[in-house]
Write a protein that binds this DNA or RNA. Structure first.
Length: 707
RNA sequence: GGCGUGGUAGCUCAGCUGGUCAGAGCGCAGGAUUCAUAAUCCUGAGGUCGGGAGUUCAAGCCUCCCCCACGCUACCA
């Protein structure tokens, strides 16, 4: 890596309508922090920015639901997230927010640049729901209605939370405005679309080969396979990239800076990534620097740390925006992580499954060095290339076995021995020990891993350094030699080397577990963080110079980690156990109540509108290219019907021929996968989503009513 | 169904462009040791590298087919 480079590192902007959980931390914030701390330590010019993403309908919805203003929502979560990151040691140079005037300006300028340049946008007018009472167009989320798929009566305009279907507002049956409660009407409205499709060509070359304008921009082999794979699958998707709307009819957001666009704001996905730019600008203003050095020119190394849900925006949409704008550098890497699960299940706020960052800090308040305990465990299982799972038992194991027994114990035994044998002073030796050269090799490997975004491997090498120290110490066993001769040269040499290794660990731990790094610095008698700069220490090692001079006085012994499984003190184990108990309680509660609430009361007349009949399945076959659909021929006694049913995941076609069924016979026909379905088979569904036939007894006649 | 990513010792996982790649950690079983937080160190375990076929002098690593898990996507009238 080149020291002339200007590194600009970003972590995904958290959406300011909620707290973040451990999965977010492991996915986008910890890896970025490791990378940035390492770059700083090796003398690179780096700026690390982030901030709150504070626009979009989800925030206004939440505000409305809680009866507060959107401003109160974003203020609350901006402060919470910012504070929590700081407490966890995530070392942003600037944590901005997209509600700041500077960001408005930046985003509007960006929009205007593309607008004036021409060729990047197109205008489209479409029919969208409008609330006449409130005189405004309704965002998807502001419309509820009955889901056309599952019949859920409170589906949103963009998706049904019951069956998970992605919807568009016009699909909803009986749509209702959540503002007025009235039925919205369709009205034409104009929006601006970013012509993503015209960028597909160079994007492919850039992602596949790392080429940009014919020049090598980055090494595509350093990009994660799943990142490249997902991008290419988007470029390959049927019809290719499509123009994307970048404006919305909403009153919460950044106004579109055109006279003809009153009442319209920039769509949140357009405005949010520009937040990286405005965050850098604010940092530059506060520090008397030039933000453009980090965004423009050949020396810029832009790296986006995100979760895999954001790959498309950061690898396709935002790069296309930057390229279209013209002045900006494109990311050299987007090391997206996969997802972290929690004790075998997805994090779920509604179920209470998982733990949020600030909850952890609260629950582990009395746990010494709890920040690093968490950072270590999360790095250890970081979902770099596949989904991974956080388990409290692993957390305990990593903390006790690796941090306390391996690292903490090594540091402690060296500090104790040095104090005991040499009055706390680094002993003198004749020559640079070969052991330190071996450690230097490990450190070199560690650096390479970090620079390749392999943080788990780097962490393993950190532990290897400590293990090397333990093994070496054990081999020499200076305590035995010392008993025979306190002046034995091997004793001096051994402890000299070990103290130097501890000093190196003070530097090596800094990117991963910075709170511990500070403690180790104190143990080796360093008062200034600058003493433990890895870059300087590596320069010294390269010249066969050790970090600490003979005669240097180190500190008094002090434990770095208090084990969780401690015979004398159960308090830390109790904290972990209470977390496990909490999860157990959720599982229990789940078993108890798995029943959805009863729908609103209807009249008998409503029921009599349904024509439900008995029937028999005569034929069944799978519909090609559909996972769930079976095409059934059903005998209703008086006629035969073709019915498409989404039961293929649970029933083999041959297994259900002859089966008695109950059919909703007067349902309007609808075509599915090219087959017209003339009715619906009634099925019972349990809490796992499994289906079972509801049917009259075998032998019952077909075509008779169910009432 | 389409696309993507994975399926390696009991568990968690490393294995880059094919030839010490059959490995590490944990667990387990022996042994050594006492400076240290019941810590440390040494030794052992013999897993058809999801299944099958193929390419090659040589294949976890390349090709094809199949199975399984996860994600995205279409579809449960």
């Amino acid at each position: 890596m080149n020291k002339e480079k200007k590194y600009l590192v970003t972590s995904a902007l958290p959406y300011a309508n909620g707290a973040l959980h451990l999965g977010h931390l492991a996915g986008a914030y910890l890896p970025a922090d490791i990378f940035v701390r390492y770059l700083r330590q090796t003398g690179r010019d780096v700026v690390f920015v982030c901030g709150s993403d504070e626009h979009g309908a989800a925030i206004t919805m939440r505000a409305k639901k809680e009866g507060v203003s959107p401003q109160e929502i974003i203020d609350k979560y901006h402060a919470l997230n910012k504070d929590t990151f700081q407490r966890l040691g995530i070392s942003f140079d600037y944590y901005h927010r997209t509600s700041a005037p500077l960001h408005f300006e930046t985003a509007q300028e960006f929009f205007l640049q593309l607008y004036r340049k021409g060729g990047e946008f197109e205008e489209r007018t479409s029919e969208q729901y409008f609330d006449e009472e409130y005189q405004q167009f309704l965002a998807d989320r502001y419309i509820t209605g009955t889901c056309p798929r599952c019949g859920h009566t409170e589906a949103y305009g963009d998706q049904c939370e019951k069956c998970g279907s992605a919807l568009s507002p016009t699909e909803l049956i009986d749509p209702v405005s959540t503002l007025s409660g009235a039925k919205p009407v369709l009205r034409p409205t104009k929006h601006w679309y970013f012509k993503l499709d015209k960028h597909a060509g160079w994007l492919r070359e850039w992602i596949e080969k790392g080429l940009l304008d014919g020049k090598q921009h980055h090494d595509p082999r350093l990009w994660k396979k799943h990142v490249v794979g997902q991008c290419l699958s988007w470029l390959d998707v049927e019809g290719g990239l499509q123009p994307r709307a970048i404006t919305r009819d909403l009153d919460w957001g950044i106004p579109v800076p055109l006279d003809e666009a009153a009442g319209k704001v920039l769509y949140v996905w357009f405005d949010a990534p520009i937040g990286y730019i405005s965050s850098t600008k604010q940092w530059a203003i506060d520090n008397g620097r030039d933000w453009e050095e980090y965004w423009k020119g050949d020396q810029v190394e832009l790296v986006h740390f995100i979760g895999k849900d954001n790959i498309v925006f950061h690898c396709i949409v935002f790069p296309a925006m930057l390229k279209a704008h013209g002045d900006f550098a494109l990311p050299v890497n987007v090391p997206a992580n996969q997802f972290l699960n929690f004790e075998g299940q997805k994090f779920s706020k509604s179920k209470g499954w998982g733990i949020e960052q600030h909850e952890y800090l609260e629950a582990f308040r009395d746990f010494p060095n709890c920040e690093d305990a968490l950072r270590y465990a999360l790095i250890r299982i970081m979902p770099e290339n596949r989904d991974s799972d956080f388990r409290w038992d692993d957390f305990v194991e990593y903390h006790d076995k690796e941090l306390a027994d391996n690292l903490g114990n090594f540091v402690n035994r060296v500090v104790v021995l040095t104090n005991k044998y040499f009055d706390g002073q680094v002993p003198a030796v004749d020559a640079f020990p070969a052991e330190l050269a071996q450690v230097r090799d490990l450190i070199d490997q560690l650096c390479r891993e970090i620079e390749s975004y392999n943080f788990r491997a780097a962490l393993q090498l950190l532990m290897d350094v400590s293990s090397f120290g333990n093994t070496y110490l054990q081999e020499v066993s200076p305590w035995q030699l010392w008993k025979e001769d306190p002046d034995h040269p091997e004793v001096r040499k051994c402890l000299y080397s070990c103290v130097q290794i501890v000093a190196l660990l003070a530097a090596l731990t800094e990117p991963f577990i910075p709170f511990t790094a500070a403690k180790i610095r104190k143990l080796v008698g360093w008062t200034d963080a600058a003493d433990a700069r890895l870059g300087d220490l590596l320069d010294r090692l390269a010249n066969d110079q050790a970090p600490l001079a003979a005669g240097h006085r180190i500190g008094e012994p002090e434990l770095l980690f208090a084990k969780i499984n401690d015979r004398k003190d159960q308090s830390r184990l109790a904290i972990v156990e209470s977390q496990k108990a909490k999860l157990q309680a959720i599982l229990e509660a789940e078993k108890q109540s798995e029943h959805e609430p009863v729908k609103p009361t209807i009249q008998f007349d409503d029921f009599t509108k349904l024509d439900i009949r008995t029937g028999t399945i005569l034929e069944a076959e799978k519909i090609p290219k559909a996972k769930k659909l079976l095409k059934l021929t059903v005998d209703l006694g008086f006629e035969r019907r073709t019915i498409v049913s989404g039961i293929a995941e649970f029933f083999e076609p041959e297994g259900i021929v002859g089966k008695k069924v109950i059919v909703l016979a007067n349902l309007a026909p609808r075509s599915l996968k090219g087959v017209e379905s003339q009715g619906m088979i009634l099925m019972a569904e349990n809490e796992k989503g499994e289906l079972a036939f509801v049917a009259p007894p075998d032998g019952w006649s077909d075509g008779f009513a169910v009432r």
